[in-house]
Design a protein around this nucleic acid. Structure first.
Lengths: 331, 331
DNA sequence: GTCCATCGAGAGAGCGCTCTCTCACTCGTC
DNA sequence: GACGAGTGAGAGAGCGCTCTCTCGATGGAC
């Protein structure tokens, strides 16, 4: 039941191990007849090169770590972002012949385990996503000399190539639209402020309002439905006269919608709601959600490609992708 | 910039490679003073054993493949099931010291690549999820001698340990509830019928209705929101008098809710809606969704543990977990 | 004091592959 | 016909670790 080795193939084909290796790795300097006899032996024996041996000899693994920051009770549980990004990235990396090792960090000790895995040479490169601000991981990974990119701009303190969408611009789009609709008191529900995306979306909201001389009204959420509902209730308490709310992602907007419904406010008549991301669920709410469409899949794909470039030693420049507003019925 | 090897540690500690290996692998037969001097050398040099070399020598990788069937345009894009299961399984396997290799199948050629990866010895075991009926993968994987479990009962044709929830029983719960509420014409929106879960849920619906002498009215969906909406419209056309619908998952129920709203039907007054799974979104719909709660995380956790047992050579018996009805407002 | 059992350290042979280096051989050229 | 260049196959030395086997040292028993 043991798998055949290079040696076995060589014996069967009546050539040297080197020749088999050359054929298997597609080197050009092999005579056609040797190639044929080797190929026949390979298929007859069902030979597949042993990965560990190959990695040991080449010092490459063809594996990439996709590292997702997911604190216990974190956001990943039900987050479409996770599915979308992981799925797209997987497809892209698999298409490039890479294997994907998924690592969830955030549980105690996980940080250490990540470093060990990288040090053990299990992967050729890493991609970080949904990082929280204070996370020491990006710096640690970079320090280890492993090629790494991040999905979403990392904090100032590290200088890694990344792909992000224009969070500030997206928020600006949303708030400006609400202003154009004649909304007067526009509140926001932010994401966790240790995340760059949350900071940027808040900044876009603030700047846009400031230009009009209005005061900002913010509640800090956690990028999930429940916190959206909680924040909405809080905002309603703080300022019963508000007539619009910009939620920093759709999940929170969905929560806000529920809170508004429960509070007896009509959307959009009494309160307009705008979300961010344009997840599929956004077009199934009642009323359907007006939201900033972020290019989730494109961003994921670009991140994967950026990493692939880095691995090839090609220049890898960060990318920022534009967002656009999708107007439905909630605002 | 090269990482230190066992040899380097041995030299620094003034002992043999064997001793270092013993210490690093925690063998008992090492004198304390040797242990100490080795440990010191290990930390001083920042030594981490090379994974490839270790795998080559031990023929184990400590990696598990999580294989998700995800045809192009498939269900994973935005499916909470994917997040929930992958996340839980990851955590569980990582806690057991295993690495997780994520493989998405369904794209052309992916099937072959999976077999190659397993043959190359990249993983010690595999877990299959969201399989479609005709998929030859389970059989292929088993044939390769790789320990494998499935998340969700596999088709008759293979005999692998699995963990599933009681799909038939869950559907029965839902339909019986609708009957108890006095609903007369109960339709169903099924999942893709090449998936066992879809078949079972449909079977539960049919059997329960048959016992009351009623006719079943079914539309075949795809376990996503859009198909839920499409099927609902179709059912409404087929039988305008229907007063209840059982959707085989919540995503389709959400789609159905939208279609009903657009058709001007009130829920639950005109039409009652029951879903399946109890994803988080189910409590945020308008009206909140009555649904069958399936133990998604528990099921995922159990699947991971089953595989771990299998790897230890312990007996691994399939598990079926119960579901329960969660009554909210849609029915 | 001698012998045997026991314990722990070291030596060394792999694990299966890659890759450089060497060498045999063919072909073209003068 | 001899020589040089060029082509392609084989030999063999690693890659970094594990693990068995051997052997020296130690302790206890008589």
């Amino acid at each position: 039941m043991k798998r055949p080795t290079l040696e076995a193939v060589a014996a069967r084909a009546g050539v040297s191990r080197s020749s088999v290796s050359r054929v298997v790795n597609g080197q050009a300097t092999v005579a056609p007849e040797i190639r044929d006899v080797v190929m026949r032996a390979v298929t007859e024996l069902g030979y597949v090169p042993n990965g560990a041996a190959r990695s040991l000899a080449t010092r490459r693994t063809n594996a990439i770590a996709v590292i997702v920051s997911d604190p216990p009770g974190g956001v990943v549980a039900d987050d479409p972002m996770f599915s979308a990004v992981v799925r797209t990235v997987s497809r892209e990396l698999e298409a490039a012949g890479k294997r994907v090792t998924l690592i969830l960090t955030g549980s105690p000790g996980s940080h250490l385990r990540v470093e060990e895995q990288l040090a053990a040479g299990h992967v050729d490169g890493a991609m970080l996503m949904s990082m929280h601000g204070a996370d020491p991981l990006p710096a640690a990974v970079e320090r280890m000399g492993v090629p790494v990119v991040t999905h979403g701009r990392p904090t100032m303190s590290v200088d890694l190539p990344y792909v992000d969408n224009d969070n500030v611009g997206g928020a600006t789009l949303a708030v400006r639209y609400l202003l154009d609709q004649g909304r007067r008191r526009i509140a926001t529900i932010t994401g966790p402020l240790d995340m760059i995306a949350a900071q940027d979306r808040l900044a876009g909201y603030r700047e846009t309002l400031r230009d009009t001389g209005r005061r900002s009204i913010a509640a800090v959420g956690e990028f999930n439905r429940l916190s959206g509902a909680v924040c909405m209730r809080q905002l309603l308490d703080d300022d019963p006269a508000l007539d619009a709310v910009f939620a920093a992602n759709d999940l929170m907007a969905i929560g806000a919608l529920r809170a508004l419904r429960e509070a007896g406010r009509r959307v959009p008549d009494d309160v307009a709601v705008v979300g961010f991301d344009d997840i599929e669920a956004a077009s199934y709410t009642a009323p359907p959600l007006t939201t900033v469409h972020s290019p989730m899949s494109d961003q994921a794909r670009a991140t994967a490609r950026l990493l692939l470039c880095l691995l090839e030693g090609e220049p890898a420049d960060s990318v920022i992708m534009p967002n656009e507003l999708v107007v439905r019925e909630s605002a």
